[in-house]
């Protein structure tokens, strides 16, 4: 009987409270570093991070997901949260993202975007433009380069930019338009890439908001301020992000 009771307690036990941060997939590699720096200053805070495409995370928040801070890869989705009442204060930019062209064969050296027109490259991965900012920018850049018609039939779509990167990394796709920040994985250090001219697409102004639910979470504000600190910025710069655009 006592064992049954203990089992029931185990089954019903609810997990300890923590600050929950919803972060764009392009932040996957830098986030552990940011968390370390943050908890070094605030040893009592515990942070849990959920990664996903910015559009998907925004939809989850609108449907009641208990995320306190939303770090988006653009400024459109945080603004949508504000418009729909799921966040109180206007979004603030904390970094800028860059798109890169990346391919699976290091021996080829860096690839110019025009090379995507060639049929030699059978599959080109981009993130799903419907809900991933990097996917939207990739489609814009391909259109601006006049490559869309030739490339579109060969596109494969990753659910978010992390999955898109994995498609190229595993060799399933020959090339991909991915986040610069995701080429910083140690195992990918030898892979050449080409930065895409930022004039070819709308900027990736990465903005964040504290959600309406996060207003009651004291650590949310602390984390938000940390993300704007010089320390956080210098970490972001080490992982392929650029300083935020001035408003």
């Amino acid at each position: 009987m006592r064992i049954t009771l203990l089992c029931c307690l185990f089954l019903l036990a609810s997990p300890a409270h923590a600050l929950t941060v919803a972060a764009a997939s392009s932040l996957r590699l830098v986030m552990p570093e940011l968390e370390r720096a943050f908890t070094a200053h605030h040893p009592k805070a515990s942070v849990r991070v959920i990664f996903g495409a910015s559009g998907k995370l925004a939809t989850q928040i609108l449907n009641g997901a208990p995320y306190d801070v939303f770090l988006s890869a653009d400024d459109v989705y945080p603004q949508r949260l504000v418009d729909e009442g799921a966040a109180v204060h206007p979004p603030v930019n904390y970094a800028s993202g860059r798109l890169v062209l990346w391919h699976k064969d290091p021996a080829l050296g860096p690839l110019q975007p025009e090379a995507l027109a060639s049929d030699q490259i059978r599959r080109i991965a981009i993130a799903q433009p419907r809900h991933a900012p990097y996917g939207q920018r990739a489609a814009e850049a391909l259109k601006a380069l006049g490559l869309w018609q030739q490339v579109e039939p060969r596109l494969v779509y990753g659910e978010n930019i992390g999955q898109t990167t994995a498609m190229v990394e595993s060799g399933a796709a020959d090339a991909g338009l991915i986040a610069w920040s995701l080429t910083f994985a140690p195992e990918l250090a030898d892979r050449p890439f080409t930065l895409i001219d930022r004039e070819l697409h709308r900027p990736l102004d990465m903005a964040m908001v504290i959600t309406a639910g996060g207003q009651d979470e004291p650590d949310a504000r602390v984390f938000y301020d940390f993300m704007l600190s010089d320390e956080a910025r210098s970490i972001l710069m080490q992982y392929g992000f650029e300083p935020p655009a001035e408003p």
């Binding site: 923590a18 959920i50 996903g52 208990p66 999955q163």
Partner: peptide, 22 residues
Amino acid sequence: GGSIPGETQVLSVLIYDYAEAM
């Protein structure tokens, strides 16, 4: 459930997450 550690992140979802993070 999304993928909230300790709350809704079950094994199948965590594996998906790991694969995505390479």
